[in-house]
């Protein structure tokens, strides 16, 4: 097990709570790093103007409301098709729900343009995928530094930041390795380091242990939860695995796109 309590801590000046306070006078709203209000989403409703025929849309989310505070680790639990990934993608700005409001650090994502959502994601949201999604031709260090490229960080600083993060996730000796030369657990650690590269306020993780064995999965979850609690970040983990969700402060069960009960 790797002790990351101190190394994954972030500076207070960039915390989401601080930023939210700046943007919104409401103390209740500002406390939430992520807030979903009556969010609904149907896939297939914007699939093209030329398409004709009967409506083939699928309801993925229906009237979902939830809040996540900085430093809180929240689990999304449910079977396949329950809407877990749709919530994560909405929070990350990868999709715009057809109904409701998604606030990230006080900004309604649904009101932003695609470019603005990309910028919000680059600055404030880190994403961890089930299948890592590292670029196979880049070294671990280059993969971790990837989000900093578009942020305009100079090459030398990108390298230093990536090496520091890889050191923190226990891969200081794997900086020049290609993803193909790493184990699944190591790949996911690189993916977590990449998600932390821009020091985001929110981390979304979709089945982060789905490709890993139990021991490796536990290590990865420790990294994620430490990054959230010690770094004062809101962490949203989607999984259908109860063992994975045990690390969460609270778990939101979903079924057929609806919140069954909020256990807060």
């Amino acid at each position: 097990m790797i002790d990351l309590h101190l190394s994954l801590r972030r500076t207070a000046s960039t915390s989401g709570a601080t930023r939210a306070d700046d943007r919104d006078g409401s103390s209740e709203d500002s406390a939430a790093a992520v807030r979903l209000e009556a969010v609904g989403h149907e896939y297939g409703t914007d699939s093209g103007r030329l398409r004709s025929g009967p409506d083939s849309s699928v309801t993925a989310l229906e009237d979902v409301s939830l809040e996540i505070r900085p430093g809180e680790v929240v689990g999304l639990k449910g079977p396949s098709g329950s809407g877990k990934s749709t919530i994560l993608h909405s929070v990350a700005g990868l999709l715009v729900p057809t109904e409701g409001r998604v606030d990230v650090l006080g900004t309604d994502v649904t009101e932003l343009s695609a470019r603005e959502r990309t910028r919000l994601r680059r600055q404030h949201v880190g994403i961890v995928f089930q299948r890592f999604h590292l670029l196979p031709s880049l070294s671990s260090r280059a993969n971790v530094a990837l989000p900093l490229v578009q942020a305009g960080v100079p090459r030398s600083r990108r390298r230093r930041r990536a090496e520091s993060l890889l050191e923190e996730v226990g891969l200081g000796d794997r900086t020049t390795h290609l993803p193909g030369e790493l184990s699944g657990g190591e790949c996911q650690r690189v993916a977590i380091a990449r998600a932390l590269a821009t020091d985001p306020d929110v981390i979304v993780a979709d089945e982060p242990t789905g490709e890993l064995d139990t021991t490796t999965g536990a290590e990865v979850l420790d990294l994620l939860t430490d990054a959230g609690r010690d770094g004062d970040r809101a962490v949203l983990v989607a999984s259908h695995d109860d063992a994975t969700l045990e690390v969460a402060d609270r778990v939101i069960p979903l079924r057929d796109g609806r919140v069954v009960t909020d256990e807060r």
Binding site: L94, T118, R119, I127, L146, P147
Partner: peptide
């Protein structure tokens, strides 16, 4: 998939 990853880490179109 690479392009999708770039988008997910904040590379605009």
């Amino acid at each position: 998939r690479t392009l999708a990853v770039l988008e997910s880490v904040g590379f605009p179109t």
